[in-house]
Amino acid sequence: MLTIAQEIYDAIVAHAQRDHPDEACGVVAGPEGTDRAERFVPMVNAAGSPTFYEFDSTELLALYKDMDARDEEPVVIYHSHTATEAYPSRTDIGLASEPNAHYVLVSTRERGNSERPVEFRSYRIIDGVVTEEDVTITPTPEHQRASTP
């Protein structure tokens, strides 16, 4: 199960809407081994595409060095699908390389930039096997406010 604070959930959805019709992507980092999704880090989609996302390689290194220095890991890796459902594509499954991460998919296909509800779903992707999991949204605690670097 993925447990995520309302504020971070909202930030992921807002990012997906902002970048629609291109795919948006990013991570939520948390202390290693805790499964706590605490630090929202939106990333630039270097592919700038409605059907593909990729972190820029230099920014990827900076992100991992930063997480390393903080004893963090990527607890959530999120991206949006802008014309299809919030379910991992063959590309998503083939390229998933963080077995400990929750892969969050947001679909903006129905909503675009409007106020309609959004699809927000979470998965484990391990060795090519996709397992959907429940998402529990909690009120944001004071000490855990999302920060945008």
């Binding site: 795919e23 992507c25 991570v27 990333m43 592919a47 595409s49 409605p50 059907t51 593909f52 996302y53 990729e54 972190f55 390689s57 990827l60 290194l61 991992y64 990527p74 890796i77 991206h79 699908h81 802008t82 014309a83 299809t84 991992p88 594509s89 063959r90 590309t91 998503d92 390229l95 998933a96 390389s97 963080e98």
Partner: peptide, 27 residues
Amino acid sequence: RFMGGLEAELADGDQVVVLPAVAGGAG
């Protein structure tokens, strides 16, 4: 990729980092 790829030169004490791309998409 900006240093010659597999032919990039290494020296004693260098640090090499391997990171899988974080990528995917509707495809």
